[in-house]
Design a binder for these strands. Structure first.
Lengths: 240, 240
DNA sequence: CAGGCTATGTTCGGTAGCGCACAGTCTGGG
DNA sequence: CCCAGACTGTGCGCTACCGAACATAGCCTG
């Protein structure tokens, strides 16, 4: 793996004013995020929050019978562990690394202290949480109304938005877990996209070939989430 | 309609310490909520937040083609308009009165001022928002995995929890809009429940006959949301 | 008390996705 | 270099739900 990206690759950290950033920077620990790592288990107490830089984390709900569904996805635009500062301390969902890479983590108490200053960190985190809310809402709508083809496009786009390249490492089996569908269904949908020349699939490696094509094929859900994220979240001014 | 319930019928207002409550009580305006009233349109600026007392409000997402899906439901346990204090000011969803009754509303700026005191009101609203997050997440899961029968049970229970009696006024057509399914599907599912002796249905009037039976027939989603709400939200100590 | 509207019930063909079984095919480790 | 295991592709029958069309029944209003 190449040189670990700096903390400012995370948009939230990058958007903090220097004084706020200075208060926490020495407490940020770099973490290697390996595919499949479980950051939080459902209902478990969280010790840290995570600021992904080059990794992607999925928030999943796992049902009693083992079936699962992705609730939301978090990359370098966000933070994993909102329930810490929202006051609940835990959530009924699980956080799993969906795409390997790096992140910085911060002790929960330090984040809460900073949040409780009611300054820029609080404003930033709350706006991010609202974006997360929109993503969850749109996931619910999408699960209700849209075809697997469309949902796969949405999912690919959400992931691609959080990665520097147009390639992602992800088996159909894992995608099926995220989307809460059968593996065979993903095989078929991915085959459709491949035949349409939108992606190239090869044993756990997906390359997006035609991003506008994917956007055209996705349902409106992707655009809604994207637009709302762009509206709510600050631009990344300082890229280190 | 009988005597309007007092503000303390809303659990959030009731949980405020006297000093915080005193700051806003004179600004609370009673509102009559009629079935179908639209409190907020998607993307519109919100002037007020609403604290339901005896009414229920649905948060809906309406798609480009007119199809809709309920994202979450808010009753006397909560507040309508979280995006105001979360910092986004608007959301892509619509808030519609699903069950007629009363509410108190508060000017947006006053709520924001109180929220920004970073006191009990803030803690309360954030915990409520986390409960809302859980509800949305579970809606997404439920839409993915559960049968219409189960979803209808979940939906009925969520509504019944927010009403004083075991009756609700709601046509199958409206339920279908909420759940994002066909009206005929609701007819069939409701027929199943009626034949099982769980509910009685009569031209827009539903009476729950066997609540434990409904809970047994609902999917785990209802229990998850309920449990998490109970955990996150304060008990209603002062009932006026 | 007639007529119209609203709400509910029923039917029927079509389809997306499920569950299962199994067949290829790539790849890394011994 | 070879084989076990991981990954992907296919083919069934099945079910839940969709879309549309239509039938009935309660309720209100004139």
């Amino acid at each position: 793996m190449p040189q670990a990206p700096g903390p400012l690759q995370n948009h939230l950290l990058a958007a903090l004013p220097p004084t706020a950033y200075a208060r926490i920077v020495n407490h940020l620990e770099p973490v290697n995020m390996t595919l499949g790592d479980v950051l939080y288990e459902s209902g478990a107490q969280m010790r840290h929050v995570y600021f992904p830089t080059s990794s992607i984390v999925s928030l999943l709900y796992v049902m009693e019978d083992g079936a699962s569904a992705e609730i939301a996805v978090v990359g370098n635009e966000g933070i994993v562990g909102v329930s810490l500062f929202m006051g609940g301390e835990t959530t009924p969902s699980r956080a799993v690394v969906q795409s390997a890479g790096h992140a910085y983590r911060l002790k929960g108490q330090l984040l809460k202290d900073e949040f409780n200053q009611a300054g820029p960190m609080q404003r930033l985190l709350l706006r991010y949480t609202q974006a997360l809310l929109t993503q969850m809402a749109q996931t619910a709508v999408c699960n209700r109304h849209h075809s697997l083809d469309q949902q796969l496009c949405r999912w690919l786009l959400l992931s691609l938005d959080r990665l520097p390249s147009n390639k992602l490492v992800m088996t159909q089996e894992l995608i099926a877990n995220m989307l809460g569908v059968r593996r065979e269904g993903v095989t078929e949908a991915a085959g459709n996209l491949q035949r349409a020349g939108l992606i190239e699939y090869h044993r756990g490696h997906i390359t997006a070939l035609d991003r506008p094509g994917l956007e055209a094929r996705a349902c409106e859900c992707y655009a809604v989430v994207k637009k709302e994220s762009d509206r709510l979240l600050p631009d990344l001014h300082a890229v280190v």
